[in-house]
Design a protein around this nucleic acid. Structure first.
Length: 426
RNA sequence: GGAGAGGUGGCAGAGUGGUCGAAUGUACCUGACUCGAAAUCAGGCGUAGGUGCAAGCCUACCGUGGGUUCGAAUCCCACCCUCUCCGCCA
């Protein structure tokens, strides 16, 4: 959530920055809540202070064997009024909290203004799409012909938006994840993490999936309540630092984590229905950094470069886009999308999203570090896909397809494929 | 699934109704002593919110939520979590 102090100080300035991303901040509602909070909180604390004074005095009088009935008489009048005020305070604080949780992050000043994806800005383009001297097939046709992708059976087992991989294609999928983990741990300084795939509501709230996006999550009944399947490893991994104070000399924390991701994609019926572009379950290798505020934008550039390195090593052409204010996720202050070239779609498609959340998630999570004066300060959080494994598999199948229907194994992956250079139909 | 124990400050560990945000130890910081260090001595040392230019002051927090009371770490109720043993089990 936003820092409430900035809203108190200059709600107008905050509102105009939010307007850039299409969010209409209700300043009047905020100010009325804030005024009510102040009145009620002041009165509540006065009553508490008076009660504490009287109770202490009663205790002292009793200790000396004096008569405390006058004090008792006054003290007797406090609990009723105090209870009323405490309830009002809890209520106004809950309403303020709900108000703040519904406000998205402020876009960074370097983020281009715009309504939707049309206004995203291309930063760079790396690699040249290959020209094919035969009709290009998409990954569904390539993978199905190889006997490695079987969507019909996946539908029987689970339903639409699930996939079943077999044989060398399934192995290629595994190889990609292994390769990504190895590069990020050995060369980019990330610590490998294995984390829960099912988490509690506090964790979902910490990274911003709740309360606004519950409809996108898979919910699991548990102990009279429920838990949630993670939509990304960002959730369990970033929450490592929830409710904690990280020593300054440990920053930045860099974690890499390979998990399946589960998304109900409730709002996207009809989009990308073919193939494994948009699935209820997919694997992703996620990069997370917990970083000093002064370093977070440099960190975002580095992290994006770490994700790009995977595409470069795989020889996949891509471009990097700066998302405009209207296209960014709720919690992000700045986001780069990396889009890989998919010849089967004749288009660049998102394969990684790298974001700086500044203190937005950290404030929700109460994640802090101790500055050089020993004061707790909010950390900044970054994350990015490095990369989405399923979509990377799609990119390899499409970009490395051959005229005879086989797929060349990218050189970087052969060590993970037992030296296999080509996947051909069995 | 069954039985038991327990959740207090970075850690250890007191505290069973009143002056307790909490003894003591330890860790850490500052100072003294020392050529320096160790040891010793003195002081400091939780988080959050509010208010104030500031020094400061006020409030909340002893797993969570409710209750009793003028007053709760302490009493009552519910829940959550952790640990130990047994059973089952990848």
């Amino acid at each position: 959530m936003l820092d409430i102090h900035s809203l108190r100080k200059d709600a107008g300035a905050v509102a105009s920055r939010l307007a850039a991303r299409g969010f209409d901040l209700d300043i009047a509602a905020f100010q009325s809540l804030e005024a009510e909070r102040k009145t009620v909180q002041t009165r509540t604390e006065e009553l508490q202070a008076r009660r504490n004074q009287l109770s202490k005095a009663i205790g002292q009088a009793r200790g000396k064997g004096e008569d405390a009935s006058a004090l008792m008489a006054e003290a007797n009048g406090i609990p009723a009024e105090l209870a009323t005020n405490e309830h009002r305070l809890a209520d106004v604080q809950a309403r303020m909290n709900a108000f703040l949780l519904a406000v998205p992050n402020l876009p960074h000043e370097s983020v281009p203004a715009g309504r939707d994806a049309e206004a995203n800005v291309e930063v760079r383009r790396v690699g040249t799409p290959r020209t094919f001297e035969f009709p290009v097939r998409d990954h569904v046709d390539v993978g199905t012909a190889l006997g490695g992708l079987d969507f019909d059976t996946a539908v029987k087992i689970a339903g639409a938006r699930f996939s079943l991989m077999k044989g060398p294609v399934a192995r290629l999928h595994r190889a990609l994840a292994q390769f990504m983990l190895d590069v990020h741990t050995a060369e980019h300084g990330y610590t490998e993490v294995y984390a829960p795939y099912i988490v509690n509501a506090d964790s979902m709230r910490g990274t911003g999936q709740l309360p606004k996006f519950e409809q996108d999550l898979f919910k699991v009944p548990h102990n009279d309540g429920h838990m949630y399947l993670i939509p990304t490893a960002e959730v369990p991994v970033t929450n490592i630092v929830r409710d904690s104070i990280v020593p300054l000399d440990q920053l930045p924390l860099r974690f890499v984590c390979h998990t399946p991701c589960f998304r109900s994609e409730a709002g996207s019926y009809g989009r990308d229905t073919r193939g494994m572009i948009r699935q209820h379950q997919f694997d992703k290798v996620e990069l997370v950094q917990i970083i000093h505020p002064d370093r977070s934008y440099a960190g975002l550039e580095e992290l994006t470069g770490h994700a790009e390195a995977i595409l470069q090593r795989l020889g996949l052409p891509y471009r990097v886009m700066t998302l405009c204010t209207g296209d960014m996720g709720f919690s992000a202050a700045k986001t780069y999308d990396i889009e890989v070239w998919l010849p089967g779609q004749d288009a660049y498609r998102e394969i990684s999203s790298c974001s700086n959340f500044e203190g937005y998630q950290a404030r929700r999570m109460q994640a802090r570090f101790r500055d050089d004066k020993g004061r707790p300060q909010t950390v900044h959080t970054l994350n990015g896909s490095g990369l989405a494994v399923g979509r990377t598999l799609v990119a390899v199948l499409e970009n490395y397809q051959n005229a005879d229907g086989s797929v060349t194994v990218p050189a970087a992956l052969r060590g993970y494929m037992g030296g296999m250079e080509r996947i051909a139909a069995a």
